[in-house]
Amino acid sequence: MDVTKLEHACQVVEIDGSRLVIDPGNFTRPVDVTGVAAVVLTHEHPDHVTPEQLQRVLDANPGALVFGPAGVAAALPDFVVDVVTDGDRRVVGPFELTFHGTRHNVIHSSVPVVDNTGVFVNGRLFYPGDSYTDPGVPVEVLAAPVGAPWLKVAEMMDYVAAIAPQRAYPVHEATLSEVGYGMHTGRLREMIEPVGALVVLRPGESLTI
């Protein structure tokens, strides 16, 4: 299983030529991939999904399924979304997906809290979306958010320490400058290295799991 990190939150997981696209939003290059079995949308915010990005993927992959929480289905009424929530499981192609969590982290008291459901891919790769969801089982590889309006570095560090993955790679970095990204990944590395390894993937780079 290979995961390719695109900009910000978007990731493409591949097994034997079959692909899973996660969170193709507007901070990401146009997502032009084929062989897509499914698209997972953790929540409705545009940096994680736009109708244009989703339509682009589906036009190239007309049989692809779309999974997301109820808020995503409501925000994208022109698309067929298989609604998932905490505890749900789906199998599509070579991908076994389990879903964890229900709510986005709080940005501010004035900003509505939307649905957010993270995804565990084949029991190995966990991506929480915009949350600090603990799936309650060991995590081999964690896609760890490092920069966001809702994110505090100390809380990120505590979250990663609690998950204690064997490996992690940073995502959700588009809100950071290069200097800020380096600082945040440095703090992430401090939490990971006692138990595992941090792999910093630049957009377009891949990790074999």
Results as ranks from 00 to 15, higher is better:
Pro24Asp: 02
Gly25Lys: 04
Asn26Trp: 02
Phe27Gly: 12
Phe27Asp: 12
Pro30Trp: 09
Pro30Lys: 10
Pro30Gln: 13
Val31Ala: 05
Asp32Trp: 09
Gly35Pro: 07
Gly35Val: 06
Gly35Met: 11
Gly35Cys: 10
Gly35Asp: 09
Val36Asn: 07
Val36Ala: 06
Ala37Trp: 03
Ala38Arg: 06
Ala38Thr: 07
Val39Gly: 04
Val39Trp: 00
Val39Arg: 04
Leu41Pro: 01
Leu41Phe: 02
Thr42Tyr: 05
Thr42Gly: 06
Glu44Tyr: 01
Glu44Ile: 10
Glu44Trp: 06
His45Gln: 12
Pro46Ile: 11
Asp47Met: 14
Asp47Ser: 15
Asp47Ile: 15
His48Val: 14
His48Lys: 13
Val49Leu: 10
Val49Ser: 04
Thr50Met: 10
Thr50His: 03
Glu52Asp: 07
Glu52Phe: 01
Glu52Arg: 11
Glu52Met: 11
Gln53Met: 11
Gln53Ser: 14
Gln55Phe: 01
Gln55Met: 12
Arg56Asn: 10
Arg56Trp: 05
Arg56Phe: 05
Val57Cys: 03
Val57Ala: 03
Val57Asn: 01
Val57Gln: 02
Val57Lys: 04
Val57Glu: 02
Leu58Trp: 00
Leu58Thr: 03
Asp59Val: 11
Asp59Tyr: 00
Asp59Cys: 08
Ala60Leu: 10
Ala60Asp: 00
Ala60Trp: 01
